[in-house]
């Protein structure tokens, strides 16, 4: 029974979640694209720009604003540090998961570790805890909604189970139970649609933790298109509006 459950979570549900996320994410983007454009400029004029001056490279500025968040750096430096570390870690985490694929080898094929040796997950967990706890305090608490907590809790749970997998891999006296290559076989089978049972690649005793990690990741992907995380697609166009 448990094996069947984990099989559903780790194979069919993964396909479903990814397809769902891509489809609904596309719908959300298309909805915005289909709407009429704003009838006039929503630009803010920075110091040094005149009323008739065209904006200076607004697209480059929008990318700069979206990726470096200068307004947050200026007005809330502590939050900015956590946000930057969080977003950089997310990119590294994405790379680390890609690196599991046998076709990509940032870390050596026979490495027992993922990219970052488990540190990325820990850093992310710290950042997420900060982002979560700051929501418990006035004045951010007053403007937060359940969805804000849910997305952070979901991510935190996924990160913690990821950290546990990393840590749990060293439980065996003989060293690492599951290596990068083992996880690679699982992902490769997913990519090749073999529908194989992941249990045959992942032999560790903490298989349930891996299953939970995948389950949380699936839930996160299902929720993502309806959450504010969609800002990853809109941060640049939004900043472009401000830049003119």
């Amino acid at each position: 029974m448990a094996d069947s459950f984990w099989y559903v979570v780790m194979v069919p549900m993964v396909y479903f979640s990814v397809a769902w996320c891509i489809a609904w994410g596309t719908v959300r983007v298309v909805e915005v694209l289909k709407a009429p454009k704003a009838p006039y400029t929503l630009r803010i004029f920075p110091v040094g720009s005149g009323s008739d001056d065209p904006p200076k490279s607004p697209l480059a500025g929008a990318f700069w604003d979206a990726f470096t968040m200068p307004t947050v750096r200026k007005h809330n430096p502590r939050l900015w540090v956590f946000l930057i570390v969080f977003h950089v870690s997310l990119v590294l985490l994405f790379l680390a998961h890609l690196d599991i694929l046998p076709q990509i080898n940032i870390m050596p094929v026979d490495s027992p570790h993922m990219l970052g040796y488990g540190a990325i997950g820990l850093v992310l967990a710290v950042c997420l805890l900060y982002l979560l706890f700051r929501r418990f305090r006035t004045p951010v608490r007053e403007v937060s909604v359940p969805g804000d907590y849910l997305v952070l809790v979901l991510l935190l749970a996924a990160v913690i189970t990821g950290d546990t997998i990393s840590w749990g891999n060293s439980w065996s006296e003989s060293g690492f139970v599951m290596t990068k290559a083992d996880f690679g076989s699982y992902l490769d089978s997913l990519l090749k649609f073999t529908w194989a049972d992941p249990r045959q690649f992942l032999s560790g005793s903490h298989y349930a933790v891996i299953g939970t990690h995948v389950l949380l990741a699936n839930l996160f992907l299902i929720f993502l298109p309806f959450s504010k995380i969609m800002h990853f697609a809109f941060a640049v166009p939004l900043n472009k509006l401000r830049r003119g």
Partner: peptide, 21 residues
């Protein structure tokens, strides 16, 4: 609900940075 308004409505992270403004 033009493009700008849709994005304004859907993407606020409620980070609270604007509160002090």
């Amino acid at each position: 609900l033009n493009q700008a308004m849709r994005m304004y409505m859907e993407n606020c992270a409620r980070c609270g940075v604007c509160i002090e403004a």
